[in-house]
């Protein structure tokens, strides 16, 4: 996608939504999943993903667990109870935003 700024503000919501669906994920997996779901249209940059994950963790919306995979340790993130509730709110906000943007971009000029 040409302008990644458009989805930058929604990054946290995207992460929360993915974790809600998948249960637990690690950083690299999140970047790949977004690429796959959007057929390469959206790419989460590494420099943005980890700060977002750490912020959500500090806010108590995510918790981490670590497992040994291959010959290294891997940090998985999952939603906390507070995170589950917040995901519902943020998704509703995002949907509302998308509706508003749609109305702005495609205004209905017909007389009601």
């Amino acid at each position: 996608m040409a302008n990644s700024k458009l989805f930058k503000g929604s990054l946290n919501t995207i992460i929360l939504k993915l974790l809600e669906e998948k249960g637990k994920m690690y950083g690299y997996e999140i970047t790949q999943k977004v690429k796959e779901l959007t057929k390469g249209e959206l790419k989460i940059t590494e420099g943005a993903l980890y700060p977002a994950l750490h912020k959500l963790e500090a806010e108590g919306l995510l918790e981490a667990e670590v497992a040994k995979v291959d010959n290294r340790l891997r940090k998985y993130y999952k939603l906390t109870e507070k995170g589950e509730k917040e995901t519902v709110n943020r998704l509703a906000e995002l949907e509302e935003f998308i509706r508003s943007m749609h109305n702005l971009v495609n205004p209905d000029w017909s007389i009601q």
């Binding site: 590494e46 420099g47 943005a48 980890y50 700060p51 750490h54 912020k55 963790e57 500090a58």
Partner: peptide, 22 residues
């Protein structure tokens, strides 16, 4: 290179901010 021109800087900075909060 995928981490951008600032390399790991953003990751370190934000992790440190988050840890301060903690």
């Amino acid at each position: 290179k995928k981490f951008g021109v600032f390399g790991f800087y953003d990751v370190i900075k934000k992790k440190s901010d988050a840890m301060h909060k903690r």
